[in-house]
Design a binder for these strands. Structure first.
Lengths: 154, 154
DNA sequence: TATGGACATGGATTTCATTTTCATCTAGAT
DNA sequence: ATCTAGATGAAAATGAAATCCATGTCCATA
């Protein structure tokens, strides 16, 4: 499944595992470089793609369609609830959804069914007092490349 | 909700409704132009974005992250099962999933919950005899032979 | 009917994540 | 140590979507 074990691939896997939340390929690449690990952006993209293919990582897309990766926990969880404000994610129990998808597959005769389930919301920590006007902090692409510290603590 | 009612917006809405399946902004633009309706690509993008915002259309993303739009049926269905081979889509009953999402919101305290559910598979018509190798790839409603790669991604 | 300004259009330009290319390097089997 | 399929990465290409901005159009008001 995994290709050859190289310094770079190892580094990517470790960095991703340290994140515990969803990160973009570019963010991860930045992290690596900032930590003095020389890796090409291309390689990070490839490593993540392969990780996804081999089931070692889960992927979601943010509002901009950008791919965000997260190491798949040992228990095999695949579905997450993530906060649109801080970006933090937590696995959710999706057995019900799996069954539901299975039933649909059976009743329609569709083969090779795949499903994507994404839950987003504003976590309790990020909730202002009132409504959802403009949450405190946004995760997405910030004008400056600095403040992203929020994403990953390595 | 909707902006002003212009010739172009009407055309986009009509074309989308005629499709009955998910189409990309560009494919829709091609359709319109090929039918002699002069509309700018920019306008199609905007019309679709606005339609989505006002709940008049549902959106999914294909493997490439491209947005595909479909008119929202009158019954308010929001979730679909679509064939990865021919691109055809059918609404599915997702009440169970809605409930499930609601429960999760309640138990986690997350606010402003949103969910995305996407089901894909190979419909009975597109199923070869054996495995999922290279499905037949139906041409369906996209006239020219260009953008087809989109719909036929396996 | 005229008019002014808010809203809409669309071709061109820009952005930006991701992919491709290709010359070079390396893991790992023999 | 040698060999080679597989891996790397800088640069360039791709392509969807957003943005610009000059121009066009709707519509409430005078």
């Amino acid at each position: 499944m995994d290709g050859r074990t190289t310094r770079q691939r190892l580094a990517v896997m470790r960095a991703l595992a340290d994140c515990e939340d969803f990160v973009s390929a570019q963010a991860l690449h930045n992290l690596l470089v900032e930590n003095g690990i020389r890796v090409g952006l291309t390689t990070v993209y490839r490593a993540l793609r392969d990780l996804e293919a081999s089931g070692g990582a889960d992927v979601v897309r943010d509002d901009a369609g950008e791919r965000l990766y997260r190491t798949r926990p040992a228990d095999g969880h695949r579905h997450y609830l993530l906060c649109r404000a801080c970006g933090r994610s937590r696995p959710v129990d999706s057995a019900i959804v799996e069954e539901w998808a299975g039933r649909i597959a059976a009743s329609t005769g569709y083969a090779a069914m795949e499903h994507t389930v994404e839950l987003t919301g504003i976590c309790t920590t990020c909730q202002p007092s009132g409504e959802e006007g403009e949450p405190p902090c946004r995760l997405e692409r910030a004008p400056d490349t600095q403040g992203r510290a929020r994403n990953c603590v390595s």
